[in-house]
């Protein structure tokens, strides 16, 4: 439980395990149904200073808004 950080702080290539999702019910449900659930391994594919981050979850690529990524808490691997 050492390094629990928001997903948006990871750099390209880094991976993390989702431990919790903060934020509203709707946003949470949306993330969860797409596979971004506690226990899932997420890898950052692309991240630029502004705008969405591109991630890989379960072999699928997603673009996720920075604000939303900040609500996904991950344990850095």
């Amino acid at each position: 439980m050492l390094m629990i950080v928001p997903l948006n702080t990871l750099r390209p290539g880094e991976r993390g395990i989702v431990v919790n999702i903060l934020g509203g019910f709707t946003a949470r449900q949306r993330l969860v149904s797409m596979g971004l659930t506690p226990g899932a391994v997420v890898q950052i594919i692309e991240s630029h200073p502004y705008g969405p981050i591109i991630i890989s979850v379960g072999g699928v690529r997603f673009a996720i808004g920075r604000g939303m990524a900040a609500k996904v808490m991950v344990r850095k691997l």
């Binding site: 946003a27 993330l31 591109i54 690529r61 808004g65």
Partner: peptide, 12 residues
């Protein structure tokens, strides 16, 4: 209304 959360699948 709430600003819609942005998450979109990038299909191959």
């Amino acid at each position: 209304g709430e600003e819609s959360p942005f998450i979109i699948e990038l299909p191959e």
